[in-house]
């Protein structure tokens, strides 16, 4: 009961702080966006037949002729009542624009995260257990190479080798038009998930390796070994349970990226997800969508951190006692 109360209080306090943070983020985002040179009207300015009167009329219709603080207040006020505005590009409500892309991004990022976590944890643990051994050196070198390669180039390489030369995977797209089968979708998922997954594997394995190494040097591990506990049991019961704690923070940070998308991979693999939506919206200065996505990302970061905090509390008995 005490634990539940503690948790609830913590959640409320964090949520209250988050609201303030959200307000600041939205204000900074809004200001930066409008300070950026150019604007949504640039797509019309050199269109044959457009006149100055046309430009001014569109500016008025989009509400862009109003003073900036007024524009912000109007936008923020609407946001509070659930109206996130409409995209300048297709007039669709921002929330439905975002929702329409989230599914594809979630699918891609979940697959990539599963690959990354599984491979990363295995590489990290085994590398740490045989520190400076052949496996550890090999894994370290491989992860360093992957981390150094630009994702854009890595993606193109995968497409060139596995799609263009070998014909094993499609050259891109979430699925061929009209095919909604899960196996077809899975087939299309292989390339981008593999590329993203490997890049993240490198990150996860480095963190895990450090965490395990740190735990291996702790007194409780030495004590367990001295007591004669079986080596695998020492690793599973004593090392991994403690090494997992820093990973929880990383897991919290994964939430925004799970729904935030991966711009480069999505572009190279023609994946219609959130990353590309963000890029297209910036290129077209689609203010409502950019602001919507910034707000959405901020909410995800806040929720991810909150989740990590809560998980920490559950996983680490020391925190519960504080």
């Amino acid at each position: 009961m005490a634990l539940a109360q503690l948790m609830l209080r913590r959640i409320w306090s964090r949520l209250a702080q988050s609201l303030v943070l959200l307000g600041i983020v939205s204000m900074v985002g809004f200001s930066l966006l409008h300070l950026t040179p150019g604007g949504p009207l640039s797509q019309f300015t050199d269109s044959p037949g457009m006149t100055q009167a046309d430009i001014e009329r569109i500016e008025r219709q989009l509400g862009l002729d109003q003073p900036l603080p007024l524009q912000y207040l109007r936008w923020a006020g609407n946001l509070v009542v659930g109206d996130w505005g409409r995209s300048y590009r297709d007039d669709a409500p921002v929330l439905s624009v975002i929702a329409g892309r989230m599914g594809q991004t979630f699918k891609l990022m979940l697959a990539a995260s599963l690959i990354a976590m599984t491979l990363g944890l295995l590489l990290g643990v085994f590398g740490a257990l045989r520190q400076h051994g052949r496996f550890d050196r090999g894994a370290t070198l491989a992860t360093m190479v992957i981390l150094s390669i630009p994702t854009f180039w890595f993606g193109l390489l995968v497409i060139y080798v596995f799609s263009q030369r070998l014909g094993w995977i499609p050259a891109g797209n979430a699925a061929p038009v009209g095919d909604s089968g899960w196996l077809v979708a899975l087939h299309h998922l292989l390339g981008p998930a593999f590329v993203l997954g490997l890049v993240n594997t490198a990150v996860w394995s480095r963190y895990m390796r450090s965490a395990v190494l740190e735990c291996l040097g702790q007194d409780y591990v030495r004590t367990a070994r001295a007591k004669g506990v079986a080596p695998w049991r020492v690793v599973v019961r004593h090392v991994l349970r403690n090494a997992w704690l820093p990973m929880i923070a990383l897991l919290g940070l994964e939430l925004p990226s799970l729904l935030g998308g991966a711009l480069v991979t999505e572009t190279v693999f023609t994946w219609p997800g959130m990353g590309r939506l963000f890029y297209d919206s910036i290129a077209n200065r689609d203010y409502p969508v950019i602001l919507g996505m910034l707000t959405f990302s901020a909410i995800l970061v806040i929720l991810g951190n909150l989740l990590a905090d809560l998980l920490y509390g559950l996983a680490d008995p020391r925190l519960r006692r504080r």
Binding site: S163, G167, G181, W182, L183, V184, H187
Partner: peptide, 28 residues
Amino acid sequence: QPGRRSLLRWSAAAAALAGAGTLPGLSL
């Protein structure tokens, strides 16, 4: 269409694994 050729290979492998003749959703 290397994508489609390889898809057929993939689906054959998956069908063998699943021990099923037809795979749901694979509508070619």
